[in-house]
Design a protein around this nucleic acid. Structure first.
Length: 286
DNA sequence: CAGACGTGGCA
DNA sequence: TTGCCAAGTCT
């Protein structure tokens, strides 16, 4: 299984800039945060802009947080931009400007959870640690467990399985990135390309005849008319303006007044928006 | 721990 | 056309 996956990756891996030979731990960290819940194709151009503009953590740390939010563009979940900015400040102030290699230091950074801390320690520093993202979880669920989808949240059994499959330190990073890539481009959620899979012959789910998911129905996230949509509209206005925005301009993009105020208050509470005199708002200058 | 949190593309 | 989904984190 390992050799087949590693050979497949060597032949079919996408050429992504954060995997290049000249990658930096900072570039890896930025890519991992941008890739949280966001497709590679949308991340790549923004990642390049960020690396050109803020090549080191200290460069971002020296900038207003509002600039990070603006440069985040339409990647979604702008709190990630704010947290990455916060992480750059912690790295600059407490780690001498160098992204820490230790998992415990990484997971202490804002916006860095279990997955991202593991990914950075492995892909930037070569640690031997299992990386359990949604791709890896799906590949293991299918090939080993024989189910279409993994459980809703990572379980102890999944961690155990991933740990058991992890090769020695020399091959661990290559193994993890290869399994992730396999899940991303072949063993996909909706239309798996089993004919192109290097381990199809040993896949438990395929052997069982691709049974449907037996778990609870997956809950879709409502969108139209939600607070999240309202927040998105308001943030789009603030991003595109390069300075204070009169409240009228915000009022104009969401007609439901009560919901609009709730969304705006939420953005302020999250630190994504700064109120000025009560009649103007702007991206944060801190 | 279930729910909040953006956005756009594809099946 | 529309629901599902994309390298999660935080509360």
């Amino acid at each position: 299984m390992h050799d087949a996956v590693l050979s497949w990756y060597a032949a079919h891996a996408r050429d992504l800039p954060w995997r290049a030979h000249d990658r930096t731990p900072w570039g890896v960290l930025v890519s991992e945060v941008m890739l949280q819940q966001t497709p590679v194709t949308r991340v790549e151009p923004v990642w390049r802009e960020w690396m050109a503009r803020w090549p080191r953590p200290a460069d971002l740390a020296a900038t207003e947080s509002g600039e990070a939010i603006r440069a985040w563009g339409r990647l979604g979940y702008p709190r990630r931009a704010l947290r990455l900015h916060g992480a750059a400040r912690v790295i600059t102030e407490r780690h001498g400007g160098a992204v820490p290699a230790e998992y415990d230091d990484l997971i202490a950074l804002p916006g860095v959870g279990e997955y991202t801390a593991a990914a950075v320690s492995v892909f930037a520093f070569g640690a031997r640690r299992s990386v359990l993202d949604t791709n890896v979880r799906r590949v293991l669920a299918r090939t080993v467990t024989g189910t279409r989808y993994p459980p809703t949240a990572p379980t102890a059994a999944e961690r155990r399985l991933a740990d058991d499959l992890l090769p020695d330190e020399a091959e661990a990073p290559a193994w993890s990135v290869a399994v992730m890539e396999l899940g991303a481009v072949v063993c996909t959620a909706r239309s798996p390309r089993c004919t192109q899979c290097p381990i199809a012959s040993s896949c438990a789910w395929r052997r069982a005849g691709h049974p449907d998911d037996d778990g609870p129905p997956r809950r879709g996230q409502p969108w139209t008319g939600t607070d999240r949509q309202a927040r998105g509209r308001l943030m789009a206005v603030l991003r595109e303006a390069h300075g204070p925005v009169p409240k009228d301009q915000l009022d104009a993009v969401w007609s439901h007044a009560m919901q609009r105020e709730r969304a705006l208050d939420g953005l302020v509470a999250d630190g994504l928006v700064e109120p000025l005199d009560g009649q103007h708002y702007r991206l944060p200058r801190a």
